[in-house]
Each structure stands twice: as structure tokens, then as C-alpha cells.
Design a protein around this nucleic acid. Structure first.
Lengths: 313, 313
DNA sequence: TGATCAATGACAAGGTTTTGTCTAGGTTTT
DNA sequence: AAAACCTAGACAAAACCTTGTCATTGATCA
């Protein structure tokens, strides 16, 4: 029986108050209670419904067609659009032509937009993908192939540093959006992850992918950020009592300390830490094959990391 | 059992004594004990309730609707609001509302929340400000003074590095939300800006403020991100045919190349570039006064940058 | 191809309610 | 006696309400 005013409804749902009133009047999307003097009062459920409608329209549904659907159906549609890893975005109801947007097309759009410096399209496309896909799907089906292709084109000289940093900035923003949003969801696993990169390794994106996978598998994780010296990491790991540390490394030669030494240093100063997982865009299994210990696992790809997490559930 | 008088209650909760009395009289928000002569006496619980009500109204709730709710429900609402950043942040869109906020009060709230490590409050407060204000207002009235105060407190030692990085991360997130949301909007001006920082200068926040001003004046801009070498910048500038380049610089000594050399290098390799604008949190006009060329403008503050853009419209 | 039309988000005008602040006049505390 | 508190009432700004309009967009149709 909690009641919010229209301003809060707008803040939470991300709509404007104008739009909320218009949706009510034009499409009967909601019928909030009124005070004696005619002011709208929204319950928790109604705010939830508004948010849902907002997200669905963002995904391309027209408000006129979904405004009058009952809550359960809205949720169902949202589930369909959201919970598919290999996603097919389809429009709803009486709209016969199903707009199919798949991961490959999204990636192609992104690369074309990047080539033409069309930042607006990049952002829009990423936003659509991240809402339509699960975090894991977003990471594995969009970002990983995209980043590989970008790296490839960088080496060919087809993409400039400026283009790539601009792209990375946008990606980081959208991924950050997902990661921050994850904190309040319920977590299944009892394992606790910490995610970081060693000092010298600046690639934030690699570990953001790792964080997305943690979101996917509803793991409890703490995102430590990049370029951290060993003492900082072990301190943090002790403080938040994590049992697994994910280290993002893409190039060994950048590191200040050789990776095996770095890892030993961390393991020597932590209590509960059971395992250290090393992962990155580049496959480091060969280069690190000589240094394996029981506590260290090196993953050849993010797909493998994904599988490993799946098994932990 | 300790009792507080109304002045203490006002001080702790951040309300005025007038307001507290009005809330009691009009909405029956509280029923404090009275002395024999009719003076209000507040218990710990009542002060807590008052503070809670104050925070909730600050977040946008109307006092009339929540004043009579019992304590547990108030707490529940508070939890919901501060713990569901997700819904607020998920929407990549900026909708200026008719809701008005007080810039100074917002900054005060932010600094208080930062001192108490209340990350969720910081995020919510920033979100409110960014929805209530235009991008330029958000930059100039909230962020610039806030960052100056933060820098001041950092030097005094009142704020730790951890607090500041946490704050910056949240600010970056919300500014990113505005910037990348703005890309989807239409632009007025025919001028095209590119925004970057030179290699060695990592301060992303400075140029984000510049980008906010571009949003404000509906300029066409490309956000190149930070830490870029001259060739990359000139390449991008040529590719997207910008006529103005905004360089964010806050400290000259960090740069790999002296700034005048860096700028000449860019100007020497670009075609359409008419002007290079240098701006940052620190006033560099004096330090760069010797190197001025016709094409280079150094701004003493973001306010000046704002004015310059206004004149271009 | 160009004209037309429905859908939709944004906004303006004009009126009502809500709410923070202030004033005035009296009482209590210091 | 000054400062702080009390009540009651007044006020103006903020927020909300409704109705109507406008610009854009995408689809349909001549």
C-alpha cells in the first residue's frame, strides 16, 4: 500500500511525467488511484508496470499495442525478449512481420557505424543489444567477436586508435550499466569472486567481460577495476573474503611483474582464496603452461570461463 | 532516554524548524512529547524518522503522501529507492523535467553522502540532478563546483583516494548516460567538435564536462576519449571533418609532448580544423600565454567555454 | 514519387493543490 | 531582556491537473 507521486514514477521508470499522463489518457495503460484532489498515486506494482512498459517500448514495441496488456503478459513478452542468449528480437502481437535482429547483424551494424564514425548508431545498437540479451549473451555473442574483429582491423590499419578508444568508451559505459544494475539482483552462488587486472595491464574491457559472465551466472562478485598492484589486490581479497580471483590479462609483456610471480605474491598473502583464474582476449594457455599450480586455472577464452561458471552453479 | 529540542532535530535532519512544525501540524508526521509548558521533545527514534522523511522528500516523494506511513514502511521505500539504482540507471535517455532542484543543496547532499560512503545516495542524487537540469546546468552548477570542493578536501586530507575514485566512477557513469543518450538527439549547429585529451592526460572527467556543454548547445560532437597521441587525433579529425577540437588538459607536466608542440603537430596534419580549444579544471591561460596562435584558444574555465559555444549558435 | 494519415512524444496555457517559508503576537527559558 | 519556542495565519513558488496543439515518423495510398 505504498504510494508514490508521479514524479517518483517518472524517475524510477525513466519516462517523463508528460509521457506517463499521455499513456494513461490515450491508451489506458494504467489507472492509478487518485487523492481526493485528483493527484495520481502509484503503487509498487504500478511503477513496476510503468518500468516494464518503458523497457518494452525501448525495445521497439509500440505503446499503443502493449499498453492494455495485463501484467503477466507484459512480463512474458519481456522474458522472451530478454532471456534468450541467441536472441531473436520480435515485435509483439498483431504485427505480423517479425523484426529479427540477431547477434551477427548487430555486430555488422556496429562495425559499419564505427567505420563511419557514427557514434549515435553505435550507442543505440549497443543499448538495444544489451537490453535484448542476457549479460552473458551480450558478452559472448556481441562483444567478444566484435573485439576480435576490431583488433584484427586495427592490425590491418582499417581502424584508427581514435575510433577504437571511442568505441571502447561507449562499450565500457554500457557494460558498466549492466554491472552496476546487477548488484541488487539476487545471487545464487555461495562463491565470491573478485575481478581485477594486474599492474601494467590497462585493459578494463577484458575484466568487464568477466563481470558480465558473473552477472549471467548470478555470481556474487566484486569489481576491483584494472591496473592494480599485488598488495592492493590481496588486501581487497582478504577484506571481502573472496574465494576466486579473476585476473584479466591480455598481454604478458606489459606487466610490471611476471604473472606467475604476481600470482604467487597474491596467494601468499591471502587466506580464503582458493583459486586464481586467468583469462583474456588472447589465449595465454601455452605461454603459461609451464607455471601451472593447483590453484591457478588459465582459460583459453571467455567461452571456457563461461562453461566453468556454469559448472559451479 | 535522551530528548532533543526542535533545533537539534532540525540540525540533524537537515530541515528547518518551521518545516518540522508544519509537517507535524499539517500531516501529523510526528507526535513528539511535550514538556509541561508545551515545548517539543524528540526521542532518538523520532529524530531518525524525521531524517528519513527528509531524505525521502529529497529524493522526490511528496511529504503529504508519506508523512503518516509507519517507520518500517518508510524504511522499505527508502531501501527500494536507493537499492534500485538499476531501474533508474537502465534508461539511457535524458528527459529534462519540470521538477526543480537547488544546486547548492544537491552539492551539499552529495558531499555529505560521500563523507559517509553512501554510494547509493550519491548515485540517486546525481540522477535526480541530471534529470532535473539541462546538461550544461548539470556541468556548471553541480559538477564544476563539486569537483573543486572535492579537490580542496583532498588536499586537506578530509577525503580519501578511495572515496574520490568511487565518486568519479559514479559521476562518469551518469555523465556517460547523458552524453551517449544525447547522441540520439538532433543537433542544431553546423559546427562539428571533436573532444579528446592529449597523451599522458588521463583525466576523462574534464572532457566529459566539455561534452556536456556540447549537449547543452546542441552541437555536433564526437567524443574521442582520453590519452590520445597527436596522429590519432588528427586522423580522426580529418575523418569526421571537425572544425573545432576541444582538448582537455588539467596538468601540463603529465603530458608526453609539450602542449604547444602537440597542438602544432595536429594542426599540421589536418585540413578543415579551424580552432583548437584548450580547457580544464585548472586555469592554464597564464602558463600558455606565450604560445598563443590564432587558431588556439585557451579557456580559463568551463563557464568561458560555455559562453564561447553560446556565441556560436 | 509525393500526399495523407495515424501514432507518439513533447509542450503550452490556464487553473488547482501542495508545501516551504515567513510574519505576528504571545510564552518560556536562559 | 534577549533568545528560543509556541500557535495561527498568510503567501508565493513548486508541482500537478486537464485540454489542446505541434512536430516527427513511419506507413499507406494515389
Amino acid at each position: 500500500m505504498k504510494y508514490f507521486n508521479i514524479q517518483m514514477a517518472a524517475q524510477i521508470s525513466g519516462l517523463s511525467t508528460h509521457t506517463i499522463r499521455a499513456w494513461e489518457k490515450r491508451y489506458g495503460a494504467l489507472h492509478p488511484d487518485r487523492t481526493d484532489t485528483g493527484r495520481r498515486q502509484y503503487s509498487n506494482e504500478e511503477i513496476e508496470r510503468l518500468t516494464l512498459l518503458s523497457q518494452l517500448t525501448n525495445l521497439g514495441n509500440s505503446i499503443g499495442q502493449i499498453a492494455r496488456l495485463p501484467d503477466p503478459e507484459l512480463k512474458e513478452i519481456y522474458e522472451k525478449l530478454t532471456h534468450s542468449r541467441e536472441s531473436v528480437m520480435m515485435s509483439v502481437q498483431h504485427n505480423p512481420q517479425q523484426v529479427q535482429i540477431n547477434a551477427e547483424e548487430t555486430r555488422r551494424n556496429l562495425l559499419m557505424a564505427l567505420a563511419g564514425y557514427k557514434v549515435d548508431i553505435i550507442s543505440h545498437e549497443l543499448n538495444k543489444a544489451k537490453t535484448a540479451l542476457t549479460p552473458g549473451g551480450f558478452a559472448l555473442d556481441i562483444l567478444v567477436p566484435l573485439l576480435k574483429e576490431v583488433e584484427h582491423r586495427r592490425q590491418l590499419g582499417t581502424l584508427s586508435t581514435a575510433q577504437i578508444t571511442a568505441l571502447f568508451a561507449i562499450i565500457k559505459f554500457h557494460v558498466g550499466n549492466i554491472i552496476y544494475g546487477h548488484y541488487e539482483k539476487k545471487v545464487k552462488s555461495s562463491n565470491k569472486f573478485a575481478i581485477a587486472t594486474p599492474e601494467g595491464e590497462l585493459h578494463l574491457l577484458d575484466i568487464m567481460l568477466g563481470a558480465l559472465l558473473c552477472c549471467q551466472h548470478q555470481m556474487n562478485f566484486f569489481f576491483l577495476s584494472s591496473n592494480l598492484p599485488a598488495p592492493s589486490i590481496s588486501e581487497a581479497v582478504n577484506a571481502i573474503e573472496t574465494n576466486v580471483l579473476i585476473l584479466g590479462v591480455s598481454q604478458l609483456q606489459n606487466l610490471k611483474t611476471p604473472l606467475p610471480v604476481f600470482i604467487e605474491e597474491i596467494l601468499g598473502h591471502t587466506k580464503n582464496l582458493c583459486e586464481v583464474w586467468v583469462v583474456g582476449m588472447n589465449d595465454l594457455t601455452r605461454q603459461l603452461s609451464g607455471h601451472r599450480s593447483k590453484k591457478v586455472r588459465v582459460f583459453a577464452s571467455f567461452e571456457e570461463l563461461d562453461k566453468a561458471m556454469e559448472q559451479m552453479e
